[in-house]
Amino acid sequence: MVLVDGRVARRRAERRKRVTLVGVLGEVLITGGVLVLLFLGWQVWLNDIVVGGQQENQAVEQSKTWERGEAVAPAPVDRPDPGDPIIMASAPQDDVQFANLIVPRFGDGWTRPILGGIAVNGALADGIGHYPDTALPGEIGNFALAGHRTGWGAPLADIGNLTVGDSIYIETEEGWYRYVFRTFAYVMPTGVDVLEAVPENPGLAPTDRIITLTSCNPKLTAAERIIAYGVYDTWYPRAGGPPPELSPLIQAMAG
C-alpha cells in the first residue's frame, strides 16, 4: 500500500512538473535577460580586452619591423642632446599605421598603433587616429590624435588617469618622441579649436611642439570630449636605443 501511494505521489509530482505556458514564458524571459547581460558584459569589457590585445600585437609587430632586427639597449639616462627631431617625410596615409602610442601610465608594455585619418570604420576601429593636416610627430605645431574610450578596443580607456608630468611616447621608424602630459580640457563635440596649431588660439603661428589626445567624455557616453594636452620634451633616435623608461615594454616585446 505504501509503495503504491509512493508511486501515485511521484506520478502526481511529474504531472505538476509538466510544461505550462507561464513556466515556459518565465524561462524564456530569464534566458533573454541573461543573454542581454552577457552581451553588455561582452561589449564593454570582454571585447575591449580581445580587440585591445589585437591592437597591442599590431603595435608590437610594427615596432619589430622598425627595429630591423637589431636589438638595441635602452639609451643611457645621461646622453648628449639629440638635437631637433627628425620629422617623417610624408603625411600618413588614411587607415595605414605610421606610429605607435606608448603611455607607461596605461600599464607596463602598453602600446597601440596610430593610423592616418579619423575614419570610424578605419583608423579608429584599429587603434588611434591622427587628425589629417595636423602636425606630425616631433613637428612644430599640434600633433592631434583621437581614440575610443570604450568599445573598439578602448585604446584611451584610461585617458582620465593621466597625471601632470606623465610621459607620452610616439614611436615611429625614426625613433621615440617624448611628450609630457600637461593638462586636460573638456569641450563640446564641436570644439575644433583644440586641433589648432596653438590649441584654442586659432590664427597664432606655432612655436611649440604640442600633442593633443581627444576621446569621449563622460566615459561610456559621447556627450562631450575629453582633451589631453602635452608638450614635446625630447626624442630618442632609433640608433641610440629606446628611452630607459620603456624598458618594461621592450622586455615584454622580447619575451
Binding site: 570604420n121 579608429l124 583621437a146 564641436t190 586641433l195 581627444t214 569621449c216 559621447a222 570630449r225
Partner: peptide, 10 residues
C-alpha cells in the same frame, strides 16, 4: 550600435 564619436569636428 552606432560607433561612438570621439573626434571633434565642425
Amino acid at each position: 550600435f552606432a560607433p561612438q564619436d570621439v573626434t571633434v569636428e565642425g
